[in-house]
Simulated scan of single mutants.
Amino acid sequence: MLVVLPPSETKAAGGRGRPLDLDALSFPSLNPTRKVLVDELVALAADVPASRAALDLSERQDDEIARNAALWTSPTAPALRRYTGVLYDALDPASLTPAARRRLLVCSALFGLVGGTDPIPAYRLSGGSALPGRAGDTAPQGSSTGTSLRTLWRPELMPLLAEVDDLVVDLRSGPYAALGPARGAVTLDVHSEAADGSRTVVSHANKSHKGHAARLLASSRRRPRDAGGVLALLRDAGLRVEQAGEHALVLVVPR
């Protein structure tokens, strides 16, 4: 079983690894596209106003642009240490075993799909970003001028995920799932339930619940083969989970 996570906008600074080496990353077939995007981000960083517009940044976030300028020279850190925030706090990757960390993948707007232990630099590029001058479909309404990254990644990530032999549990948020839908993957939505039984979809707080679920899945010795197996694993761990479709699960939490 493999668990696919979204990245985070926030990323830890620094690192002890050598500068970016694409050959050190999982899924080497993605390296040509990775190189194109890294080179484009480095070039874009030379134009600070254009970077702000393309990446939806304010002047107070110019340090993010500086990170992009140094993508080829800055130190790296394992992906699960690089990404920070609510989901990764709940996941607590530092306390996971090496085997558990190897079951975790991260979908990145810059690198496509990386293993949890892959060494990557700090960067800024979101799933909904659009780099100026890219040829292809136009970006979604509300994004910056340019073209959607899903135009670039979808033809590569969809077949890659389809070829995975293990069951895939897809915990990505919408913009990252759109980069390369994983057909047949088990998904998990989070709903909050009020005392009267009414439910609403959990938005920001769902990251914590998904991080906890990812930890349980990666740490388990069980290897479910379908949504029913994932449901049983999570229920046995004390979570309230329901099946909402052949491949869809819902985690119900109190409001």
Rank of each mutant, 00 (worst) to 15 (best):
R103A: 07
A69S: 12
P75G: 03
P75Y: 06
D89E: 15
L91A: 04
R101Y: 07
A99W: 12
L71I: 04
A70I: 06
L96H: 08
A99D: 15
T97K: 12
A79K: 00
T76F: 00
A94L: 13
L104W: 01
A90L: 11
S74D: 07
S74M: 10
R81E: 14
D89A: 15
R102D: 15
R81S: 13
D92I: 11
S95P: 07
G85D: 08
A79F: 03
L80W: 00
A77H: 04
L87N: 04
L96I: 07
T73N: 10
A69Q: 07
V86P: 00
A79Q: 00
R103D: 00
D89R: 15
Y83W: 04
V86H: 08
R82W: 07
R103S: 02
G85L: 07
R101F: 05
A99P: 07
Y83T: 04
G85A: 09
L80I: 09
S74L: 05
R82P: 02
S74H: 00
W72R: 13
L104N: 01
P78K: 02
P93W: 00
V86R: 13
L104T: 03
P78Q: 06
D89N: 14
A77M: 08
T97H: 09
T84S: 14
L96C: 06
A70W: 01
A99Y: 08
P75T: 09
D92S: 15
P93F: 05
T84G: 09
R101K: 14
P93C: 08
P93S: 14
T97V: 12
R81N: 12
S95H: 13
L91M: 09
A79I: 00
Y83M: 10
P78I: 04
S74V: 08
P78N: 10
A77W: 01
T76W: 00
R82E: 05
D89C: 12
P93D: 02
P98R: 10
L80S: 02
R82T: 09
L80D: 00
P93A: 13
Y83L: 08
A90V: 09
L80P: 00
A70S: 12
R101G: 02
A99K: 14
A100N: 03
R101E: 06
T97S: 15
D89M: 12
A94W: 11
P75Q: 07
G85N: 09
R102V: 11
P98C: 09
A90N: 06
Y88S: 06
R102H: 13
L71F: 00
L91E: 03
A77I: 02
L96K: 05
Y88E: 03
D89Q: 14
V86I: 14
T73H: 09
R102N: 13
L87S: 03
Y83F: 15
L87I: 13
L87W: 02
A69V: 09
L80E: 01
R102I: 04
L96E: 03
Y83S: 06
W72V: 06
L71N: 01
A79H: 01
P75R: 02
T73P: 05
L80F: 00
T76K: 01
A70L: 11
Y88P: 05
